[in-house]
């Protein structure tokens, strides 16, 4: 508790390069960029694979392999190989880790939709893309949102670790505090990261309530 007062009460963390609002904004910026790019790649790809059934094996296998990849090792290796300077060397591993949960859940959501629903939609005269977007997508939405949530959580957590290779954001407090044995800073930074993760989690719960069709929600 004393550490929290020491950390949040210190003027050092409210102005300049190490200000809490600035670090929070940086964290959100990296996380959102990586998450948005990953979603833009993974959702269309997942819809396509789920709808056509092509390439499914590769997706499932590579997603399982991705879970075993150690994030810290991947970050360090990619940044060493490409070199620091721009944001991209750090964004690339973040995006790579963010894609699999979205891709797999989008694919599973479309693939797992009731075949009767698919048949009924075709029977009503809808064309392929209409079946996908009007019938299958709403049903798959809860699973897709779950994938997006898992991915966002991974990105926020990994962006914390990425402070080690020179990224800004909230992870800086933890890494810098550890390096200088300033445990109030480590503790304060960790609490901020936990609060951010909880906010992301809550955000997705609310989003789920708003955009999932009430009919789909009742079945679950």
């Amino acid at each position: 508790m004393n550490w929290l007062i020491e950390f949040f009460g210190s003027a050092e963390y409210w102005s300049g390069d190490d200000a809490i609002p600035l670090r929070l904004l940086q964290h959100l910026e990296y996380s959102f960029l990586a998450f948005a790019i990953a979603a833009l790649i993974a959702i269309p790809l997942g819809l396509l694979i789920g709808h056509t059934g092509r390439g499914a094996v590769i997706v499932v296998v590579s997603a399982n392999a991705a879970r075993a990849l150690p994030t810290l090792g991947l970050l360090v290796l990619v940044v060493l190989l490409i070199g620091v300077g721009t944001l991209w060397p750090v964004l690339i591993p973040l995006i790579a880790l963010a894609i699999p949960p979205i891709l797999v859940n989008t694919y599973e959501g479309i693939r797992g939709a009731d075949p009767d629903l698919r048949d009924a939609a075709y029977g009503m005269g809808l064309r392929g893309s209409q079946v996908l977007f009007r019938a299958l997508l709403p049903v798959a939405l809860p699973l897709i949102l779950l994938g997006l949530r898992l991915s966002a959580i991974t990105v926020v957590a990994t962006a914390t670790v990425a402070a080690y290779v020179g990224l800004g954001g909230l992870g800086r407090y933890i890494i810098d505090g550890l390096a200088t044995k300033n445990y109030a800073e480590v503790f304060g930074g960790a609490v901020l990261v936990v609060l951010l993760a909880l906010a992301v989690q809550t955000g997705f719960t609310l989003l789920n309530r708003v955009i999932v069709s009430p009919g789909v929600r009742q079945v679950r």
Binding site: V161, Y183, V186, F187, A190, V194, A197, Q201
Partner: peptide, 18 residues
């Protein structure tokens, strides 16, 4: 458990460090 799963590992390690 959903909430626990969302907590970043590095943050938990750092908090437990004390």
């Amino acid at each position: 458990m959903n909430v626990v799963y969302s907590l970043p590992s590095l943050a938990l390690f750092s908090i437990l460090l004390s």
